[in-house]
Design a protein around this nucleic acid. Sequence first.
DNA 1: CGAACGCTTGAGCAAATTCAAGTGCGGTGG
DNA 2: CCACCGCACTTGAATTTGCTCAAGCGTTCG
Lengths: 210, 210
Amino acid sequence: MTAAPIILATPFETRHPGAMPAASRPPVLFAPGEEIYAQGERTDSLYRVEFGAVRLYRLLADGRRQISSFYLAGEVFGFETGGVHHFFADAIGLTGLRALPRSGSREFADEIMESALRCLVRSQEHLLVVGRQNAIERIAAFLIDMGDRQGGLDQMELPMSRTDIGDYLGLTIETVSRVLSRLRAEGVIRLASLRSLVVLKPARLRALAA
Amino acid sequence: MTAAPIILATPFETRHPGAMPAASRPPVLFAPGEEIYAQGERTDSLYRVEFGAVRLYRLLADGRRQISSFYLAGEVFGFETGGVHHFFADAIGLTGLRALPRSGSREFADEIMESALRCLVRSQEHLLVVGRQNAIERIAAFLIDMGDRQGGLDQMELPMSRTDIGDYLGLTIETVSRVLSRLRAEGVIRLASLRSLVVLKPARLRALAA
DNA sequence: CGAACGCTTGAGCAAATTCAAGTGCGGTGG
DNA sequence: CCACCGCACTTGAATTTGCTCAAGCGTTCG
C-alpha cells in the first residue's frame, strides 16, 4: 500500500508517463507499491502494462479498500471521465508502463472504446462474484480468471498479496488464506510458493466457481 | 422476473426497437417485467429510457441474480462489446424506450464514449458498496443515489421491488426490509407507500452511507 | 541472529441468511 | 360494496458464514 523503499538507480524516463511524448520509448518503471496516480488527479493518457501488475482501487474514509481490478502485462487501464481519475492506481511488483496517447486516429479511438467496454463488462461480471457468490466461489472464480489471463495454463503467478486478493473479492485476508488452504487440502491446487500456484483439478475448480 | 400478463393494446411501434429506423419516433413500450434483451443476443443499438425504469442483470446457474444497474428516465444503457449482449435487460414498470443509432457523427461517438465511461465509473463505485460496506451502509448509499438521480430532492420513488433492491445490493429481501424498517423506526425515512419514500434526516442518511 | 512482514490457523462472535409465520394492500368477483 | 385472494412485504427465531481477535509460523532482510 505504501511505496517500497527501492530507489530505481537509472530511471528510464521522466517519472510521469503522461508527460511522455511518443509511444515507442522504453517503459516507465514503478517500484513495488509505488503510486501511479491518485483519485482526483488530472488524467490525459491511458497506460499499457508492459510487465508487472497494477491494482486499481477506491478507499472508504475508515480505510476499507476495494480493489476494482488488477491489470497484468499487455492490458490497458486508465479510462476515466471528465479528465479526472476516480480511483487510485499503484504498481504491485516492479512494473513497467507505457503511456498511450488519448487522442489519435478514428480506428485507435474505436479500439480504446472497445477496450473500455470490455473493462465495463468485466467490472459488472465481477460484481456478480462479489455480490452473489460465497468465499469458495469467489476464490475459484478469481483463480480461473487469473489463469485465463496468463495464457490459460493451469500454472499461474499471483503477483498480489493475500490482502490484495481479499480487497478485490470483498473478503478478509484470513478467509482468503483459509479457502486456499482448504483447496490445497482437497488437492484442487498446489502452492509451489506463496505467489505461485498450480491447478491440479481444473474441472473441480470450475465446478466450485459456479 | 417474468413478463406480466398485460397485453399492450396499441403498440406504438414494432416490438424490437433495434429495428426502429430514426430517433424522433414515439418510444417503444414495454410491459412490467417484459424482457428488453437477453444475454447472448446480438445488439446494434443503445437505448434511452423515456419513462419507467430498467434493470440490467446477470444470473448464476442456480438462479441467484445480480442486478448490475438500474436505469431511470433520461438515462442511456446497452453498451456492449463484440456486438453481443452480456446481460439481461428488462422493464421494471411500464417503460418507454427510444433506440439510439450505434454509429453517427464524431461528436455523437464521443458523447457515447463519455456515457459508457460514466457507466464504468458508476459500476466500479458500486463494487465498493457491495464489496466493502455493510447492509445499512449499502441501503443508505442506494437511497442517496436514487434521490440524486431523481432531482436531488428528499422525496423519491422506488420503481423496483425489495427483491430487486436486494439483488442490486447483494442482500436478501429480508435484510433490505429489516434495514428499511430500522431507518423508519429511527425517523431517518418515511415510507409514504411501499414504493414512495421521503428522507426526513438527509444528513443522518449521508452519515450512515460512509 | 533477531526483527519484520506476510501468511496461516484457531476460537469466539456478529452480521446476514434461511426458514417460517404473519401482515397489508390492490384487484377480482360475488 | 364488501369479502376474498394473491402477492409483496414484514417480522421473528434459528442457523450459518465469514469476521474479529489472537497466537504461531516461515521467510527475508538488515
